[in-house]
Nucleic acid binder design. Structure first.
Length: 310
DNA sequence: AAGCGTTTCAACCGCAGTCTG
DNA sequence: CCAGACTGCGGTTGAAACGCT
């Protein structure tokens, strides 16, 4: 196959030698001139971006990075470049590989669909088993937080289409606190007949939905383990009283709405990132459990998706 | 120690969007 | 406005590393 910029050349392929890396490092922005004779210019650029950039962070992912990947993936999906933007020093390729080789399996072992982050069908027993597995592989933050008595939180499923909107609320029953005996049942709530009756969100306007996120400075009586929630990528939470969590399945939206929603998601993620960095700067706060988790909690819950099994 | 299967991750491909002359 | 070059991105491939028997 020829190459668009240097099709006449017989290009070199395969792994890069240290000598090639050194040459590319010395002339990172003139690679087309310096290296196209031997490698695809595009490949040179990729090598620089994915491997040689001085700001790149090498080594394995830390738990906070893993958590960020899961969080952002839950919202944006397979947008590796977008996810990587929230991980300074990491490339989309790294994130993608880490997802495929590690996180994906981790989620599946927890009975979760890596694509939707929802429970897989028939994963009830897996869930109870996986919660044990998860607890052993949790970040220190989550382990710290899960020392509190776990309380399962009901969630609301919203199925929206241009024609109709249905909501279903699920309540978790775990009276003896034995996950093996726990179950989810649908709660018939007449106030949930329409999306407009959402307890947390009286409007179908998605921008309103997202913009009504509580500010990070707001206080909440519910000390939610948002990190716990996210770490496991499931619906388990530690905290106080159960509450209703709206989850929205967007039906067919107009293209414009999707774009707006996407922009809002990115804004939301930026806010999350700021919040995350702030939190990391004040890691000691976790020890006193005085951190306000409501911000991230609310933002993520607002964008969570739960699809009804076919 | 050798063989084999699995995992990891760098490298590459192809497509779509953007830029530029 | 158009065509070709460039860029960005997600998906796939395959070599190397690793683990197990």
């Amino acid at each position: 196959m020829g190459h668009r910029c240097c099709g006449k050349q017989k290009v070199k392929r395969g792994l890069w030698s240290p000598e090639e890396d050194e040459k590319l490092s010395n002339h990172p922005w003139s690679w087309q001139l310096e290296f196209c004779l031997q490698r695809y210019g595009k490949i040179c650029r990729l090598r620089w971006i994915n491997y040689l950039r001085p700001e790149l962070k090498r080594g394995s992912f830390i738990p906070e990075e893993e958590q960020t990947i899961i969080d952002v993936h839950r919202i944006l999906g397979y947008k590796w470049a977008q996810i990587a933007k929230h991980l300074p020093g990491r490339t989309d390729n790294e994130v993608k590989n880490f997802w495929n080789s590690c996180i994906k399996k981790k989620l599946m072992s927890q009975g979760l669909d890596p694509k939707t982050h929802n429970l897989l069908p028939n994963s009830h027993h897996q869930r109870s088993a996986s919660s044990k597995v998860a607890s052993s592989s949790q970040s220190p933050l989550l382990q710290l937080h899960n020392q509190q008595q776990p309380i399962q939180v009901p969630f609301t499923e919203i199925n929206a289409s241009p024609i109709n909107v249905t909501l279903r609320t699920y309540q978790y029953h775990d009276l003896d606190q034995n996950p093996c005996n726990a179950s989810w049942t649908r709660v018939e709530d007449p106030t949930f007949n329409d999306i407009t009756s959402l307890p947390h969100q009286p409007s179908t306007d998605h921008s309103t939905l997202i913009n009504n996120i509580p500010s990070s400075s707001s206080s909440s009586s519910v000390n939610l383990s948002v990190f716990g929630l996210l770490e496991n990528s499931n619906i388990w939470l530690s905290g106080a009283d159960p509450f209703e969590v709206p989850r929205i399945v967007l039906g067919e939206q107009s293209k414009g709405e999707e774009v707006v929603l996407q922009q809002e998601k990115e804004t939301l993620l930026d806010q999350m990132e700021i919040k995350r960095i702030e939190d990391m700067d004040h890691a000691s706060i976790f020890e006193s459990s005085s951190i306000d988790f409501s911000f991230v909690e609310s933002t993520l819950m607002s964008t969570m998706v739960l699809r009804e099994p076919d």
